[in-house]
């Protein structure tokens, strides 16, 4: 570590950016969104105005802020020293994302290993919930309706293949970028996005299937909660990843990036692989076992 820092500091000036109004705009946007959502969640639909306004401001802010960064990058403001900062930054951001998912996986573990067995044993069983059995998937002792859990070997298995393939196509696209084969880069980047979007489409179809035919809903006890929250947050991350890949595609088409200077692309690739790994865990722990 000490070594990398020292070698990077052969470059004498670190790019310290000028003041900009985007951060405060982002805070305002998030404030409006949260305030609006609070009202919407509590039944005052007027909150949508605030939330939508906030969301539009957020989009505008991101467009301008990323625009500035892209301009600086293409303008040669970032050398190896700044590049290393971005690498550290993205790595630690992904680490924080891992911990976010860890919380929800923890909830799944707790439900399967602790709360459901507890509710079906000894005192809980005799006094509170007679006859409740420790079986997973479970929607809990108070859930009266019947539901069918989501199987692993239909759409989820196809989705696993899709996401794993998208990891491969993304790597091929990256090779294209490194070896300056722009055609390969654009084609395989497009394929990656297509695979990601297909994944999302199938995921939406699966949700529809769960709601309309399996009677499996967000409110289907702790199974429904963990199933939809885990796969839902994952799907949200795939959406973000697909949007970022699309931005990368447009940048590639406009001739951005050089074989030795394309960290934005790599960062998105890292993120995409992270989302991929989360999916593998989901497939094993949520769908399969």
């Amino acid at each position: 570590m000490a070594q990398t820092a020292t070698s990077a500091t052969r470059q004498q000036h670190y790019h310290v950016p000028q003041p900009m109004p985007w951060p405060i705009m982002g805070s305002t946007a998030l404030f409006l969104m949260a305030l609006g959502a609070t009202f919407v969640f509590n039944g005052s639909m007027g909150g949508w105005v605030s939330t939508s306004l906030g969301f539009m401001i957020l989009l505008y802010m991101m467009y301008r802020w990323f625009g500035d960064v892209i301009r600086e990058s293409e303008g040669g403001k970032y050398g190896r020293w700044e590049d290393l900062s971005f690498r550290w930054g993205m790595s630690w951001f992904i680490f924080s994302e891992v911990m976010f998912f860890a919380g929800f996986f923890g909830a799944l573990f707790w439900a399967r290993a602790m709360s459901v067995p507890d509710l079906s044993s000894l005192l809980s069983n005799e006094l509170l919930w007679p006859g409740f059995k420790n079986l997973w998937p479970s929607a809990g002792p108070g859930f009266a309706e019947k539901f069918t859990p989501m199987g692993a070997w239909g759409i989820p298995a196809i989705n696993t293949l899709l996401l794993l393939s998208s990891g491969v196509t993304l790597t091929i696209a990256h090779w294209g970028l490194v070896n300056n084969k722009r055609g390969q880069l654009n084609l395989f980047l497009f394929l990656t996005i297509a695979l990601g979007v297909t994944f999302l489409g199938l995921q939406i179809f699966e949700y529809g299937h769960a709601y309309s035919e399996l009677n499996l809903k967000l409110s289907t006890g702790v199974y429904g909660s963990t199933f939809f929250m885990l796969t839902g947050f994952h799907g949200f991350h795939v959406t973000i990843g697909a949007i970022m890949l699309t931005v990368m595609l447009f940048r590639c088409l406009s001739g951005h990036f050089k074989p030795d200077h394309h960290f934005a692309f790599e960062a998105v690739a890292w993120y995409w692989h992270f989302v991929d790994v989360v999916w593998l865990l989901l497939f094993i722990l949520v769908y399969w076992l």
């Binding site: 969640f41 909830a107 707790w110 439900a111 602790m114 709360s115 459901v116 507890d118 509710l119 479970s138 929607a139 809990g140 002792p141 108070g142 859930f143 809903k217 967000l218 409110s219 006890g221 702790v222 199974y223 429904g224 909660s225 963990t226 939809f228 929250m229």
Partner: peptide, 14 residues
């Protein structure tokens, strides 16, 4: 707000 049961024993949560 959305009917999940993470912390609700009746739904298998805790």
């Amino acid at each position: 707000h959305f009917g999940t049961s993470f912390f609700n024993a009746a739904g298998g949560g805790d």
